[in-house]
Design a protein around this nucleic acid. Structure first.
Length: 254
DNA sequence: ATGGCCTCGGTTCGAGGA
């Protein structure tokens, strides 16, 4: 089984790339963020033609998340029941006995802003909710754009980014509090190439210069981590014409 | 350089992203 996550920055624009990527990488599960589509606009038929069913929750212009699966999807819920939120940022479902949580964490805009405080409160509530979910589901995976680079090796220039949004101490502490629930960062269970990132700014030729951050993550409950056999970032789609600024992350299981 | 790009909504500029 392979599960994956990709912030597509508009599914309307990126649908051809999603279908191409799934054709090249026939994963069992793909979690999408920033679909930016209301549910009536979700491309159910095109995705079904590729062999995937979908659970999705979206809104106009911003946010929006989806779980694509080749296996049956059950017990779908939207958002965090502990955190009333007009923004559509979480969809969860059970697939092949695994509780899959697809999340698009708020960006936070800048340290100290209203959006930054919303981000920290949102992450507090996510941690509290996942704590109870982990008690109910032995095999749980949190996948998505978590909008935090957890450690220095996850940032192309840690000293430039230190204290900035995506890499500030309170955000990194929130990330560590998810790990403190017993979850494992799937990517760091394995030896990885140095300077591995999942997002590069569209500006400054950042991708070509590999000026990126690792902010898209797959976190696994201990039970699920034990049967994880690999985790990798796929940089290929970032080289395609009109790419998303993020690129997929894939975890494999025995 | 307090920038540079991309997407959306809705017009040709502002907001938001990261």
């Amino acid at each position: 089984m392979r599960i994956s996550t990709w912030n597509v920055n508009s599914l309307r624009v990126r649908l051809p790339q999603v279908l191409r990527w799934l054709s090249d990488n026939p994963v069992d599960v793909l979690c999408l963020q920033e679909t930016k589509l209301t549910d009536d606009k979700f491309p159910v038929a095109e995705i079904a033609a590729a062999g995937y069913q979908a659970a999705f929750v979206g809104q106009k212009t911003y946010n929006g998340v989806a779980i694509l699966s080749t296996h049956p999807i059950s017990d779908v819920i939207s958002n965090n029941p502990l955190f009333p939120d007009d923004q559509r940022r979480i969809v969860s479902a059970t697939i092949e006995g695994v509780r899959v949580v697809c999340a698009y964490v708020p960006n936070g805009q800048s340290v100290g802003s209203d959006k930054y405080h919303y981000k920290l409160q949102w992450l507090d509530a996510l941690r509290d909710w996942l704590g109870s979910e982990l008690k109910a589901h032995g095999e749980l995976a949190l996948l998505g754009d978590l909008n935090v680079a957890p450690e220095d090796p996850d940032v192309h220039d840690p000293n430039l980014w230190r204290g900035s949004v995506l890499f500030s101490d309170p955000e990194r502490e929130e990330f560590r509090s998810l790990l403190a629930l017993g979850m494992k960062d799937a990517f760091r269970l394995f030896e990885q190439p140095p300077t591995s990132f999942s997002w590069w700014d569209y500006r400054q030729m950042a991708f070509r210069r590999n000026m990126g951050l690792r902010i898209d993550h797959i976190l696994l409950s201990e039970q699920l981590a034990r049967r994880c056999t690999g985790c990798a970032i796929d940089r290929e789609p970032r080289k395609w014409e009109q790419p998303s600024d993020h690129t997929p992350v894939v975890a494999s299981f025995g």
